[in-house]
Nucleic acid binder design. Structure first.
Lengths: 313, 313
DNA sequence: CTTAACCATGACAGTTTCTGGCATGGTTTT
DNA sequence: AAAACCATGCCAGAAACTGTCATGGTTAAG
């Protein structure tokens, strides 16, 4: 086996142990102790963060951040990584902030000069623009850790009517539209509720643990693909502008039928519970759309308009 | 110099040339031709996509995707890359689709077993959820290339009243909220306009070139940080629900003043041209907010409410 | 305070790998 | 047919690597 390969294997070996001696390595790889020392200083030079403790019960230790063996990327893959990071900048709070800079630096440094120029010039024609969200979410890391360890959380939460204190069992967190959401089992209500992490005022990890009922991906699938409990037919007529607007809404797009460039309609089935949200949406579109069914929606929109007129009378 | 370093340098050298002979390499690195051959087969084994053409005027060629020398990441950096890719999945159209998969595969393969497990378990508690945007943008790559090459584009665009054909000089593209936008100089109107790429029906690259007036980052900065041309004072009273809602709007957040948890107000200055948009926004919030100033906004909201009542009478 | 169990480093000879020539054979262009 | 490439094999000398001592530290246990 080539020496290079042997060293890669050593890197992997070293990462699986927290602490080990040169003897261990010599025995494991069938080499002499002297050579083990030599190999270890080699990989340390390559960047693996080793340090040693002298004395009896001493030995080699690996510092926290484990090092992966070298990987070869190509130019396009490097681009992909850079642009993925651009997209991440959209989020103001991230659980792993720091490291994206170090990756960028390593990657950029290894680029040949003309690729650097190409990168820079591409950078000047494509961006992931971010409207600096000023809503920080300070508890991300704690929530993740609590979810992974199945710990109960005690949170103070800004809800619609007042601030409430709840004990919840977090399932996980997910990001959507620049916000972080935490679905969690609410002990008091006996069901899974969705919380926005930026609306958590304070958070405390308890020592209680819970048996996880469901994992995040399952929960997301279930709650997104759920079939309506009490289905309601939705029928909306669209003007040209209505077509244009509704096409931007991913939840509506599949149900849009274009009759002509200036006319179309939406035909779909929604759940009773979504009425409030849907009503707000079509209300905002004003005369660009005309809701025909359901009746409640029409009434809801009309009522909302009356309320506004009353308020500004 | 160690052989490894020599090979890395050779990788870089090879990438700067499209075509070269073993002689060139031997001369450049001060090694024999025989060794040059050996080195070249070595880096080919390592994954650099070399191929050779026999015969006079033959030589070594490098296939398209240039390979970067090996890079060592650590575990946390690998996490950062994975999560950045998660975030990218939010966009349905990407100019560099394919390569994120290959990066993920390479990275995942090099992870030690227990880190793989850690990754998988983290994956089950954190996600970047994406409401599958079904609005594809097929022209991204062409727009980027045209912008980089300063080419004029002829596009057919779905605008408010009708489909129009325009000649535009693209400045670049940027992503925001899951959509791709293209600011471009519109020849007919003599000014820079903003287009949504998914509303481009057809696109044709012309051979005409233009002198770029401004680069994308500058344009973004300018158009985002611009001072109002005709400033208007905005004053809005907020209920508890109003506070909650407006906090989610990055453009409003800085101007929110919380009097008590159940009461607050917004005091800001906006531009005359933004009135239509702002009006739509506060309209939608209904009774959770009360616009006090400017007068036009109040009138606008009231008028919109009346129109709705008329429409649904 | 001695011993055991570690690391660190140097010297040296034997072994392995690498290197540079040289030679042969194949392909394509001129 | 000659020139200019690559591909591969062989071989001797050079360079690098390896294992075996040997020496000198450090720390913990007895």
């Amino acid at each position: 086996m080539s020496k290079a390969k042997q060293l890669f294997d050593l890197i992997l070996y070293v990462n699986t142990k927290r602490s080990f001696t040169a003897q261990d390595v010599a025995h494991e790889f069938g080499i002499s102790v002297r050579t083990a020392h030599r190999y270890l200083t080699d990989i340390a030079d390559m960047g693996v963060p080793l340090y040693t403790e002298p004395g009896r019960s001493g030995g080699y230790r690996v510092l926290s951040n484990r090092t992966l063996p070298p990987i070869m990327f190509n130019e396009e893959e490097a681009f992909a990584i850079f642009f993925a990071f651009q997209a991440l900048k959209y989020y103001q709070s991230l659980p792993f902030d720091i490291h994206i800079d170090s990756v960028s630096r390593k990657l950029y440094a290894s680029l040949p000069d003309d690729t650097k120029r190409k990168m820079d010039s591409l950078d000047s024609v494509i961006t992931f623009w971010n409207q600096k969200r000023t809503v920080p979410s300070p508890f991300l890391k704690e929530i993740i850790e609590a979810a992974a360890a199945h710990q109960l959380l005690k949170i103070e939460y800004v809800s619609k009517l007042e601030n409430t204190v709840r004990e919840v069992a977090p399932i996980g967190i997910y990001a959507s539209d620049g916000f972080w959401y935490m679905p969690a089992f609410d002990q008091a209500h006996g069901e899974i509720r969705l919380f926005r992490t930026d609306r958590i005022v304070s958070l405390e990890r308890t020592s209680e643990v819970f048996a996880p009922q469901i994992e995040l991906p399952d929960w997301l699938n279930r709650s997104m693909a759920q079939t309506p409990e009490s289905p309601v037919r939705l029928y909306v007529e669209l003007t040209r502008e209505g077509l244009r607007q509704c096409r931007s809404q991913p939840w509506l797009e599949p149900y849009i039928v274009e009759v002509s460039p200036d006319q179309g309609y939406i035909e779909s089935v929604i759940d009773q519970r979504e009425l409030e949200f849907v009503s707000g949406y079509f209300f905002q579109l004003g005369t660009a759309v005309t809701v025909i069914e359901p009746r409640e929606l029409v009434d809801g929109i009309r009522e909302q308009a009356r309320e506004i007129l009353r308020q500004y009378s």
